[in-house]
Design a protein around this nucleic acid. Sequence first.
DNA 1: GATATAATTGAAAATAATTTTCACTTAGCG
DNA 2: CGCTAAGTGAAAATTATTTTCAATTATATC
Lengths: 151, 151
Amino acid sequence: MAGPHISSEEETKERTSGWIASLADRGYRITGSRRAVVDVLAESGTSLSPAEIYEQGRAVHKQLGLVTVYRTLEKLEELGLVQRVHRPDGCHAYIPALRGHEHLLLCEQCGRVEYFRGDDLSELSRRLEGESGYTIHDHWLQFFGVCSQCQ
Amino acid sequence: MAGPHISSEEETKERTSGWIASLADRGYRITGSRRAVVDVLAESGTSLSPAEIYEQGRAVHKQLGLVTVYRTLEKLEELGLVQRVHRPDGCHAYIPALRGHEHLLLCEQCGRVEYFRGDDLSELSRRLEGESGYTIHDHWLQFFGVCSQCQ
DNA sequence: GATATAATTGAAAATAATTTTCACTTAGCG
DNA sequence: CGCTAAGTGAAAATTATTTTCAATTATATC
């Protein structure tokens, strides 16, 4: 199994420009406000609520409005680039979306997110389908703890 | 692996009286309103939002208030008897809490919940702890699909 | 580059979910 | 039974999110 994946600065920059390109490809205009939302979330190692994105985004683009944060998240979510993250204490924060068979490890204190691979649940999924009669579409495997910084 | 566990009527009755006993043990009074909330959620095979519990609970105890639904859920949650269930489209519904190493299989259409056992994630958890430096406290393994009734 | 125009913006209002307040009721001990 | 602190529902307050709308602006086209 690959270890958890700590994002490098290099990669988060690529993520930022990739998201901007996806928005443009889709026909959405690239505005200062959208850039600010993308910058903040793509380069954050932690999950962020709309209010946190708003606050941090204003450092980049001072006239940013909270409404635009919501609207931009909606578009990024629609493009599969970001997703809400669900935690025992709530699900109001966003992260760069999981890709392929990635799973999550989350810090309960600071919201830090690690992505890892290495557990194939498709066999279990098929077995469950057979035994339950469900048609299974998706799954979540998430671990919750405290990161080394927060200990 | 044991198959998913379909609750019998027998068992849900036991669950209802167990929850009532736990509330009483803890020193909480047993009122008609609390009984209604417990009845509805303990005997439901699907996840229910506070508003749904309120609506169904009024069939049992007509003066039930929505505020009391919230307050009773808070107490049941504190006692570890119920928990919020998180799904891609939201996390505003409650279910009887997982026990031991149970995991969830959820119907995206009707909210039906199946509990299953059979996957031990403790080894993966330990491995992740070592590689990430996190102290892991908890995990979720959840499958999402469409149940046989909803197909 | 200038310009036309439809997309996008932020502020304010509206809505929805949840929590708090408070005067009244009641479960359950003695 | 009667007492009393716990619990109640209605209404108000709070919080998160969405909608409305007039003003602004990104970008395709000249």
